[in-house]
Amino acid sequence: MPLLDVKGLKTYFYTNRGVVKAVDGASFTVNENEIFCLVGETGCGKSVTALSIMRLIFPPGKILSGKALYKEEDLLKIPESEMQKIRGREISMVFQNPMNSLNPVFTIGYQISEAPTVHFNLSKKEAWKRTTDLIRDVKITDADTRAKCYPHVLSGGMRQRTMMAMMLSCNPNLLIADEPTTSLDVTIQAQILDLLIEIKKKRRMSVILITHNFGLVAEFGDRVAVMYCGKVVEIGDVTTIFRNPLHPYTRGLLRCLPIGYKRKSKLGFIPGTLPSPIDTPSGCSFHPRCEHSTKSCKLREPELVEYEKNHFVACHLYER
């Protein structure tokens, strides 16, 4: 029984220039106690997928259809008041740029204590204790003084730790981390991700790690879903996907990485460019760039099918 089951999620944005199909029928499951990676290039809909699960889509955006079953409850159907109990308490989210998600006029201690105060009705004293414990949990030294700091005095790494403390404050079962380390340096990135793994193990929670970096997927992920043009094109165990990628897009992406090549030799590449999200190609959205494309690729959209155990792919090449 998966923890989260997303089925046929569609989120469109109705802009002046046309309908942007940001997420267009994405399906995947997240199991308990695993790190599930959503990987894809800019504009493939990974962030919007996460925001849709949290129901944080505002006009002109709209969640058109689909299901997001969390513990057998459809997050997309329940009333907003119920959803508020889920956000932070059950599912919480870390964003890419910590400076934009922290409020500059409140101390970090106040911001961390806010959610548990609301969710658990804590007294001031209890909240403060909880806050300093959390700050210690994310390995910030000198918790009592740090809690009284404002975000601008902290470094990027510290801010991201603060964000994590905030997200962990209500013991969520599922953490959605949207490019949590993209704005950080590699040595800091390694510290933050090691911390994330440690906390994940200690609290036995699941993590959806959204990233464009295949290095992070290989290093930290258990399972991975590859997205293209708002759709999930392939899902599988990380080792399987790297050893035996099926979808031509996944294969192309892995060939683009400058590893497994002799120095200064020519890298593989995917011809063409990403299609405009307003005017996505018919049928399989990858067909204009695909070397195996046939007539049926242009006409019919392939479905996500289980090609081998736990390895799903949406491509006509593998339909039987």
Binding site: S155, G157, D185, V186, T187, I188, Q189, A190, Q191, D194, N213, F214, G215, L216, V217, A218, E219, F220, V238, T239, F242, L254, L257, I259, G260
Partner: peptide, 22 residues
């Protein structure tokens, strides 16, 4: 050691990660 390598077979649990910041 901190650089993630896109190859799960070279995944390492034995990494040399330093604390602190520049």
């Amino acid at each position: 050691s901190s650089t993630p390598i896109p190859n799960p077979h070279l995944k390492s649990t034995n990494r040399f990660i330093v604390g602190g910041e520049p």
